[in-house]
Simulated assay, not measured.
Amino acid sequence: MVLPIGDDNRDRKTTPIVNYLLIGLNIFVFIYWQRWGHDLRFTYSYATVPGEIITGHDIVTHSKTLIDPSTGQRVILPGLGVTPIPVFLTLFTSMFMHGGLLHLGGNMLFLYIFGDNVEDAMGHLQYLIFYLLCGMLAGLSHVFATYFLGQDLLTPSLGASGAISAVLAAYVRLFPGKRVYLWIFLFIVPVPAFIAVGLWFVFQVIDGLGMLGGDQTGGGVAYAAHIGGFLFGLLLTRMFARRYLARRG
């Protein structure tokens, strides 16, 4: 297992209040509105559904009854619910919802480790705009990849992963040599940021390519959002961190 557990923050000059607020909002939405992930009707109503984004119209489907092949237990899977907001806004709302505790915990760990330094370099408002813009662009990347690859347009997607991928891209662009501490089995190993983030991106590409011929009807990881968020993050970092890059020369 390879997991980042921290980085060198000795050069950080500001308190990352926006990053803390983003983490707090993600946790609040999961606990209060998603009911710890159990309120599937709410989740399916505010998640991004590729078919809705492409057509511009809300799509409502019936619930399905699935049978667990190992236990024989019947599980009711809610259909897509009524979206009380314009469907394009689900590109925003889906960024603050998660599929489970592990999904939430992993995303917030990465945001906590890497987001504070990016906010410090960009400034609070610039960082917030960067995060939200890249997150929605990452969602669009998933929508169009789903369409062009002929995958299920009615499978909802959610999570902060696309926006956090952009944060990782900005981090490696701004701090390529900063030490990141990785937990590798029983050891903690410091490595340069470009190696830690580079390995993460390579795994996203490999896993994404492996999913191209797979059946996506049951959901799965939106690798196109991860890759799209990372690429948009690389492209937009210079715009949002212009002052920091100018000072650094």
Rank of each mutant, 00 (worst) to 15 (best):
L91W: 07
S141Q: 01
A241L: 00
G177S: 13
E119H: 00
I53P: 10
L174M: 03
H142S: 10
H124L: 05
L125K: 09
G220T: 11
L231Q: 01
G115S: 12
R179C: 13
A166T: 05
I195H: 09
L231M: 08
G214V: 13
Q126V: 01
W33H: 12
V167K: 01
D120H: 04
A193F: 01
I53F: 06
L102K: 01
F130S: 03
L154K: 12
A246P: 00
T55G: 15
G150A: 00
S94Q: 13
R242F: 06
V191H: 07
L234M: 05
Y171T: 09
P176H: 06
P78L: 14
Y20F: 06
G115P: 12
G177E: 15
I67S: 08
I59G: 12
I31T: 12
P156N: 04
F185A: 10
D7N: 06
N9I: 14
G233I: 00
T48Y: 04
T217N: 14
W183K: 14
H38Y: 15
G56D: 12
F232R: 01
G37M: 09
T15A: 07
D39H: 14
P156E: 03
Q73L: 15
H226Y: 07
Q126P: 02
Y46D: 01
V143T: 08
F148I: 14
Q126Y: 09
L199H: 04
F175E: 10
A47H: 06
V87N: 11
Y223I: 04
V205A: 11
V29C: 07
G162V: 03
P190E: 13
K13L: 12
T83R: 06
T65L: 11
L101E: 11
F144C: 00
G229E: 02
A160S: 15
L154C: 00
G249K: 04
N107F: 03
R248D: 04
Y181C: 10
I85G: 00
V49W: 09
L168K: 00
F114E: 10
F88T: 12
M1S: 14
A145T: 13
N9P: 03
V29D: 07
H103P: 11
Y181R: 08
R41P: 09
D8T: 14
